[in-house]
Design a protein around this nucleic acid. Structure first.
Length: 254
DNA sequence: ATGGTGGCGCGGCCA
C-alpha cells in the first residue's frame, strides 16, 4: 500500500502541530502541502525530519508556497512551469520511487474577469501543455493540490448561489476539463459520484458547521495509475480542530 | 451587493 495526501494548510508555521499530528496518525508515504506562507530560510525542516520525513519546498514571504514531505527521498525537483516567469511559488514537481508527483497551488483568480482571473486561466493553459509533455516522460504521473476550481455542481454546496462566480465559472471548469483530457482522471470520482463532498469551507459565516463547502482539492492520476487506485478519501477531521486551515486533507491509496 | 474570518505583519492585501 502506498498513501499520498494533499493539504492546503494556510500557513505551515501556524498549522505545523496539526500537520505533525496528522502524519503520525495517518502515516502517508507522501504529503503535498500548499499555502505554506513561509520563506525557505524559515521552513520548519528539522521538526518535519524528526517526524521521519524528508522534505522539499519552494516558499515565499506571506503568500503561496508549496512543500512535499516523503518517507523516501524525493528527487528531480522542479519549481516552475515552463513559459511562466513567475515569482509566485505555486509548483513543486518531484519523483518519489517510480511516481512523478506535481504539487500545485493553482491561482485563486480573485474575481471573474479580473487581472488575477486572466492570470489563472493563462496559468492553467501553461499547466496543460506542461502536463501533456510530462505524461510522455512519466506514465505514472499524479497531479494534485489546491486547484481552486470545483469541477462540477456536485462539488458546490449551493450551485445557484455560486453560478458564474470564481472557483466555479465555466472558463475555469473548461480549463480543468482540458487538463483532464490530456490523460488525467479525478481520482475521487472513481469511487463516488455523489454531490456534497467538499474539501474547503470558508472561515466566514460558519460555513463548516453548516457544511457549506466546495471540493477544490483534487488528486488527478494518469491512465496507468487509475487501475491501481484502491481508495480516495476526504478527511474532514482537521477542519474541525481549533485554529484549522480552511482546507482539509484528501488522501489516495494505491 | 456587502461583509462575514483568518494569516501575515502591523496597514492593507489576499483568500
Amino acid at each position: 500500500m502506498f498513501k499520498i495526501a494533499t493539504w492546503n494548510v494556510n500557513s505551515l508555521r501556524v498549522r505545523l502541530p496539526q500537520v505533525l499530528d496528522w502524519v503520525a496518525k495517518h502515516k502517508p508515504d507522501v504529503l503535498a502541502l500548499q499555502e505554506t506562507k513561509v520563506t525557505d530560510d524559515k521552513f520548519p525542516g528539522l521538526e518535519i525530519e524528526a517526524a521521519g520525513y524528508k522534505v522539499v519546498y519552494s516558499g515565499q514571504k506571506t503568500y503561496n508556497g508549496v512543500a512535499v514531505l516523503s518517507r523516501e527521498k524525493a528527487c528531480d525537483i522542479v519549481t516552475d512551469l515552463p513559459g511562466i516567469d513567475d515569482p509566485q511559488r505555486r509548483v513543486l514537481g518531484v519523483t518519489v520511487g517510480d511516481l512523478r508527483i506535481l504539487n500545485l497551488y493553482v491561482p485563486n483568480g480573485s474575481e471573474v474577469d479580473s487581472d488575477k482571473y486572466k492570470y489563472k486561466l493563462d496559468w492553467l493553459e501553461k499547466l496543460q501543455a506542461y502536463v501533456k509533455q510530462q505524461l510522455s516522460v512519466y506514465p505514472k504521473l499524479i497531479v494534485l493540490g489546491d486547484f481552486n476550481i470545483a469541477p462540477d455542481d456536485r462539488d458546490v454546496y449551493d450551485p445557484k448561489v455560486w453560478a458564474g462566480h470564481i472557483l466555479v465559472s465555466e472558463p475555469e471548469r473548461e480549463a480543468l476539463r482540458k487538463l483532464l483530457k490530456v490523460g488525467l482522471t479525478d481520482s475521487f470520482r472513481l469511487f463516488n459520484d455523489e454531490a456534497g463532498h467538499y474539501s474547503w469551507w470558508d472561515y466566514r459565516m460558519a460555513a463548516f458547521p453548516r457544511d457549506r463547502g466546495l471540493r477544490l482539492d483534487l488528486i488527478l492520476v494518469s491512465e496507468v495509475l487509475v487501475k491501481q487506485v484502491k481508495k480516495v478519501v476526504i478527511d474532514k477531521e482537521p477542519r474541525g480542530l481549533d485554529r484549522p486551515s480552511d482546507h482539509t486533507p484528501v488522501v489516495i491509496e494505491f
